[in-house]
Design a binder for these strands. Structure first.
Length: 290
DNA sequence: CGCATCCTCCGGTTGC
DNA sequence: TGCAACCGGAGGATG
């Protein structure tokens, strides 16, 4: 499941191979078309697949960037500008290939949903096993207001102040700290893996209520979140649930995780415990974390 | 209107 | 071997 560092890895590997390329042809899977015809949500959001294809066709990808866990493809078609916004969900993946057979893993090859053709033998392919991902073609980010509500990038200058301000709001006071730091309105891009790790490093119990964490510890916690996200980006992300960048390369951060997925605490060797917080499984050390 | 809660999307994986 | 339960980002519907 890609979080901020993994999405950053995808964007860095996409950038050199798609910037400046023109989308000559677009193909959308029958699965998407039939699902949407049945009234279900399926990857392409806010637009019917035919309009999506027609509008994408002929556009040039000017730039690619990451925002939180989203990928923004900046497009131009003459004087017109648009943004293709992608979220990888649980199992989304991009592949840059000359033939679909180059996608070696069958479970991805079986679930190809959108093909962007640059040339007759050069494709950018979106595959998504569980179809939790999304593709949204917008004239402007403001056309999808939830994107405007996302907290600043964690590495940006105002991010700490924003975190301190948001997390102090009454509506978060009685919520578990883990739920709050995983909320994209408070911290951008911090999912289950990195929230778990940051709380372990801080020795804070994931269920501790937000109001019961001092300002000083909140600052430390945020610093730990930023540090671990940065560390993970440098390690190429965590290759859990088959995450690969578009060149099929795995990251190594999973080897450096101290609590996520662990049966015992690496410090005191107590068996870890689990509890469900905001619908997500949360691992912690009952001895070290309070 | 703001907010909280519930529900939906899916198939590989896991456990029985 | 077969089958059912499980898991989860984000947004939309509902209360």
């Amino acid at each position: 499941m890609p979080e901020l560092p993994e999405v950053e890895g995808v964007v860095r590997s996409l950038q050199p191979v798609v910037a400046g390329k023109t989308i000559r042809h677009v193909e959308v899977s029958n699965t998407i078309c039939t699902s949407i015809n049945k009234g279900k949500a399926c990857i392409i959001k806010g637009m019917d697949p035919e309009t999506f294809s027609n509008r994408l066709k002929g556009t040039k990808i000017m730039d690619v960037e990451r925002r939180s866990k989203y990928i923004y493809f900046y497009l131009e078609d003459g004087a017109d500008e648009a943004i293709l916004v992608n979220h990888l969900g649980m199992t989304g993946a991009w592949f840059h290939v000359h033939s679909l057979n180059e996608i070696k893993e069958e479970k991805f090859r079986k679930h190809i949903h959108v093909i962007l053709a640059f040339e007759e033998d050069e494709f950018l392919v979106y595959a998504d096993i569980r179809r939790f991902g999304e593709l949204r073609l917008l004239d402007s980010i403001a056309d999808h207001p939830p994107l405007l509500e996302i907290a600043p990038e964690p590495f940006s200058p105002g991010a700490l102040e924003y975190f301190l301000m948001k997390s102090a709001l009454p509506k978060y006071a009685n919520k578990p700290v883990k739920e709050v730091i995983m909320d994209s309105h408070v911290v951008a891009g911090c999912g289950n893996i990195y929230a778990t790790e940051a709380l372990f490093r801080m020795k804070i119990h994931p269920n501790r209520k937000m109001a019961r964490i001092s300002e000083k510890r909140k600052k430390d916690l945020f610093a730990h979140i930023v540090a671990i996200l940065q560390e993970s980006i440098e390690a190429g992300g965590s290759s859990i649930s088959d995450y690969r960048n578009i060149n099929g390369e795995a990251g190594s951060m999973q080897n450096r995780l101290q609590m996520y997925g662990r049966k015992a605490c690496p410090i005191c060797h107590t068996n870890t415990k689990q509890m469900v917080i905001a619908g997500r499984n949360s691992v912690y050390c009952p001895h070290c974390q309070h």
